[in-house]
Amino acid sequence: MTKTEMTEPFLKRLRINTEIDEEDERAINSLPIATKRMANGELIASVGDRPTACCLVTDGFILRSKIVGTGQRQVLAFHQPGDVPDLQSLFLHIMDHDLTALGHCVLGFIPHGALRELIKRRPSVAQALWRETLTDAAIFREWICNIGQRDATSRVAHLVLELYARLKAIGRTDGLSFNFPATQTLFADAVGTSVVHMNRVVQELRNQRLLDFDRGRISILDEARLRKTADFDALYLHQDPSL
């Protein structure tokens, strides 16, 4: 995989709502990036680690999670191509959560020193990364609302629409379908419900002809009705450059 192929999903995300020029893109493409392929369930970083590089998701997915005192896992985010999920490690030096590969994925590790030098030299890139961090925080806020105030069916519908909207923005969907290797257990951990209830929700969404889940592929069958079920407003994703 070439350097350009490694950075293209990331640049696509930045182009959605930030003004970066050709020199900025060349500077990003000149970063030293160590490619690593990781298998499903492999730990990328865990609580207590002190990373020396940020990971760029180039292909596949990773999940952010935390184990609570009872040993149960709460999924905090699903990250997809173009995301730099541990960007905060530039300034928060110790990890307070885990990053884990979700299915097979390709990551690019960028040394902190190179990133710090880049944001000093290219203020527009620094602004773009700051905006990405703020968008990440906006998504966290929506996840809190999702778990705290919506019923389980709406939570799942909302999560699927979020995944779809973000993948569509970088050209990683096929019509209303996309690949996503999460199990029902992971979905349950993300939306705060039991696996048994998650199974009921999946069957309900299928029976209502809203969604279809088939071996790591999700298909939206009726987007308008699914948005209504989910109470979905994409504003929090900040993908509209006019806003």
Results as ranks from 00 to 15, higher is better:
1 M>W: 10
1 M>V: 12
2 T>W: 08
2 T>H: 14
8 E>K: 07
10 F>G: 00
10 F>M: 07
13 R>F: 01
13 R>S: 02
14 L>C: 09
14 L>V: 13
15 R>S: 07
17 N>K: 06
20 I>N: 06
22 E>K: 11
23 E>W: 08
24 D>F: 04
26 R>A: 10
35 T>M: 10
36 K>I: 15
36 K>N: 10
37 R>M: 09
40 N>T: 14
42 E>T: 11
43 L>M: 14
45 A>L: 09
49 D>E: 06
50 R>F: 12
50 R>W: 08
51 P>C: 03
53 A>P: 05
59 D>H: 12
62 I>M: 05
65 S>P: 03
80 Q>M: 13
80 Q>H: 10
82 G>S: 03
84 V>W: 00
88 Q>I: 14
88 Q>N: 14
88 Q>E: 12
89 S>N: 07
90 L>K: 08
90 L>W: 07
92 L>P: 08
95 M>D: 11
97 H>W: 06
99 L>I: 15
99 L>Y: 08
100 T>D: 03
102 L>R: 04
102 L>P: 06
102 L>Q: 10
109 F>D: 08
111 P>S: 06
119 I>W: 03
121 R>T: 13
122 R>E: 10
124 S>Q: 13
124 S>C: 10
125 V>L: 06
126 A>W: 04
128 A>N: 06
128 A>F: 01
129 L>H: 01
130 W>N: 11
130 W>H: 13
131 R>G: 03
132 E>W: 00
134 L>C: 08
135 T>W: 00
136 D>I: 08
136 D>M: 14
136 D>W: 10
137 A>F: 11
143 W>K: 13
146 N>R: 15
147 I>K: 11
148 G>D: 15
150 R>M: 13
152 A>Y: 10
152 A>V: 15
155 R>W: 07
155 R>V: 05
156 V>H: 04
157 A>F: 05
162 E>G: 09
164 Y>S: 03
164 Y>W: 11
167 L>V: 07
167 L>R: 09
170 I>H: 00
171 G>N: 03
173 T>Q: 02
177 S>Q: 08
179 N>D: 13
183 T>S: 08
185 T>Q: 07
187 F>L: 07
189 D>M: 10
195 V>N: 10
198 M>Y: 01
199 N>W: 01
200 R>A: 11
201 V>D: 03
202 V>W: 01
210 L>R: 01
211 L>Y: 00
211 L>W: 00
213 F>L: 12
214 D>R: 11
218 I>D: 03
218 I>R: 01
218 I>P: 01
221 L>A: 01
223 E>D: 09
223 E>A: 04
223 E>F: 02
224 A>C: 07
225 R>K: 13
226 L>S: 03
229 T>A: 05
229 T>P: 07
235 L>Q: 14
238 H>F: 04
240 D>C: 01
243 L>F: 07
